[in-house]
Amino acid sequence: MTFDYHEPTSLREAIELGARFGVDGRFLAGGTDLMVQIHRGRLNPRHVVSLQCVPGLDAIEVDGAISLGARVTHRRIETTTDFQGALRALVEGAEVVGGHQVRNVATVGGNIVNASPAADVVVVLLALEARLTSLGPAGERTIALDGFGTAPGVTVLRPNELLTRASFPRLAPRTATAFLKAGRRRAMEISIACVAARLTLDAALERCQDVRIALGAVAPTAMRARSAERYLEGRPLTDEVTREAGRIAATECRPIGDVRASARYRALLVATLVPRVLARCLERIRFHTS
């Protein structure tokens, strides 16, 4: 393991280096995935391009559409006041990533580009219908987060492209979000399964007007539970209905069995977590609109 280290101080310089090194180069954000993979010998880049001195990648914008710069750390998300209300799922996703040491440096951009099926914040962003902005030698493009990851560790980002931010629309009225994760212990644990939801109620606060459900660690990439979403739309959110949504989500996920859990257990967790996440959203909407 050996490489050259580069510390560009502008976006332009970062992209130039990315273009020059192509597949031989890697961008470095918090390093909590990259450095571990280098130490394990799974990755062997010739050039590591640190993003720490590149300006303009660490902004959180909340006027109009909400936008998270690629270098925003999980710790920043946890402590952002604007996310403590209806956007609480972001905090719930970020605060379970590793321990304090990891969250102090690990970034949203790294979580997305690393493309682990168990990436917690990615699951939340999927429920928020996030779009990504990337910058490369050919200029800027936006990419839907849904479909960005194509297999574990594989994305549609080109090797010389830089992810600059993830953004998603402002929430509609009577909307709340929630995220829940199941692991073998309460901290420092990769998800066995995790679920995020964004729920909007009708004016009477009874029926589901609009819902997005995202699942993590139960398919090769984070995925939307589209059949469960369709089933819920227009229905009153009784316990029976949310349980049925959980059962539907459990049939559309495609989990594998591994050291952490069997495929069957993962599907059972989805069936359990979906109604719980919806119940949390309901509680939050009622609390904030009462």
Partner: peptide, 27 residues
């Protein structure tokens, strides 16, 4: 562990706890 799992390498970087095992000295 050298994988940011155990915390024995914790130092404070500008006041924040970080794992020195996955931090490049150059950073």
């Amino acid at each position: 562990c050298l994988e940011a799992e155990c915390g024995v390498c914790t130092v404070l970087l500008e006041g924040a706890a970080v794992n020195a095992c996955i931090l490049l000295a150059a950073q």
